[in-house]
């Protein structure tokens, strides 16, 4: 057993990762200071009631372009306890691979019916559900032809759980060249949703994505 903190890795072909990844080993937190490093995020119920359905900007507006999908899952800590009333902040590119974000200068097509940002809160059992449009892959490095595979960004906060992650899609050709997926190695599979059929609801397919918030922090205040 070593007593050194982690040496972070740089995502291959990711310039930003090269510019921003600390080069020094992380310092291990001294035991007597651990508690101070664990934020307790107060519950903030800022989700508007229609935000669970990203396929429309609001219930009275048309469906956005592309394939409507459902994402469901349970958020737990590593010891298996559900994260109740946790806030999920969700954002994904539209069908064409464009974000409705003021800093997305890709020039890809916007969709007047797609916002691409929404928030949901987990229920008593840690379960969540939202609908969105299956995102387009987008070209992250035109100079070397590297694409970002289809993905949905999800930020989880609540209690002493805090995680920002991405859900990927099964069998996508660009999954294996993604810098962060490469760093995850075999553990990448945990970030891939599992497809299921949705015969009785108004979406074309569903993906199950169970989230486990890791680290010692996640269970500190259980």
């Amino acid at each position: 057993m070593t007593t050194l903190g982690r040496q972070l890795s740089i995502g291959p072909t990711d310039n930003t990762s090269d510019q921003r990844t600390p080069r020094q080993r992380l310092k291990l937190i001294p035991e007597t200071a651990r508690k101070s490093f664990v934020p307790y995020v107060p519950a903030r119920y800022v989700s508007r009631t229609h935000e669970w359905d990203l396929t429309r900007i609001s219930p009275d507006r048309p469906r956005a372009h592309g394939e409507a999908i459902e994402i469901t899952g349970t958020v737990r800590t590593q010891s298996g306890a559900p994260l109740r009333h946790g806030l999920l902040e969700i954002w994904n590119a539209n069908h064409y691979g464009r974000y409705r974000h003021i800093e997305d200068h890709s020039g890809l097509q916007l969709d007047e019916n797609f916002f691409g940002m929404g928030r949901v809160v987990t229920d008593e059992n840690g379960q969540y559900k939202f609908w969105t449009i299956s995102p387009g892959a987008y070209l992250a490095r035109p100079d070397i032809g590297r694409w970002r595979p289809k993905h949905i960004h999800i930020s989880v906060s609540g209690g002493s759980s805090r995680l920002i992650t991405q859900m990927y899609f099964p069998d996508e050709p660009n999954n294996h060249s993604d810098p962060m997926a490469i760093l995850m190695g075999d553990a990448f599979e945990r970030n891939v949703g599992t497809s299921y059929e949705t015969p009785n609801i108004d979406v074309e397919q569903g993906f199950r994505f169970d989230i486990v918030v890791g680290g010692r922090n996640a269970t500190f205040f259980e």
Binding site: S17, Q78, S79, A81, S155, I164, R190, V213, T219
Partner: peptide, 27 residues
């Protein structure tokens, strides 16, 4: 205690936030 309960589940990987964390979520 600092850790209660056995850790049995494998954690979801953290991932980059990407450049487009929604300013819309600002509070």
């Amino acid at each position: 205690t600092q850790e209660t309960g056995q850790k049995t589940l494998l954690p979801t990987n953290e991932d980059t936030t990407g450049p487009y964390f929604p300013i819309y979520f600002r509070d």
